[in-house]
Design a protein around this nucleic acid. Structure first.
Lengths: 119, 119
DNA sequence: TTCAATACTTACCTTCAGGTAAGTGAGGAC
DNA sequence: GTCCTCACTTACCTGAAGGTAAGTATTGAA
């Protein structure tokens, strides 16, 4: 496995879900693929400002192992690789929506309080 | 702040929510407080097998700063401190439920496939 | 006078997630 | 024959998250 021991014994459902989502860019990759349906490696890289190629690939590989995304390679030169959500990935995205909405409300509350408004 | 720079500029709602939940024990603390309503420090420690006192306090402090939990000190000897969810904490827990259910299904699927069944 | 209980606090150390930067392979454009 | 694009791959490094273990304060009980 690319990262440390995962799929561990889980304490609860949150734990099991977190194992799959934790990683600096994973939820954003999910979001990006959900929005665009299909994205090339380079498109993802440009869509996630600040991500390093190493981490992007590492996360993509783990998510593929976890059955969240599908990787389609077109044997062309220069190479083309397209990523898309699997059914599991799409359902995870659905499950994350309430959390995203909660975070959105929190952001707005913080902004209203003048705390660390995004640049 | 106890941990690094948080409440950062957020890329999206998930990001903002993750900032508050990320931490090895935070979602479990949320879960524990949701189940019991009110818990003492020592009860939480015993309820989260493997947590160190340092991390438990650190997480509790951060969650208090983030408005998720309430800390009530009773000036007795030996001291008594009780933790409980605030309204924000309870709503976060609600927002986490679909994710928990997703993780539960994933756990069951993994178990059915015979992959790393919990000890 | 020493111990126990409780909720921390502090210093130190290990581990690992993530970042940086350079390299690879294949073929078409120039 | 050199350069370009694209999707990686590899080696190395840093910082932060988390663990370990010992110490603190208070007071009643033995």
């Amino acid at each position: 496995m690319t990262s440390g021991a995962r799929r561990g014994p889980y304490i609860c459902g949150i734990d099991a879900a977190m194992d799959v989502v934790s990683g600096k860019w994973k939820s954003l990759i999910l979001w990006e693929l959900n929005n665009y349906g299909t994205r090339r490696f380079g498109e993802l890289r440009r869509g996630l400002p600040g991500v390093s190629e190493k981490m992007l690939i590492q996360h993509l590989r783990e998510m593929e192992e976890d059955g969240l995304i599908h990787r389609e390679v077109y044997r062309e030169v220069p190479p083309r690789v397209e990523y898309s959500l699997t059914e599991h990935g799409a359902s995870l995205n659905e499950a994350l929506r309430p959390l995203g909405e909660w975070g959105q409300r929190r952001s707005e509350r913080l902004a209203a309080e003048g705390v660390a408004t995004p640049a």
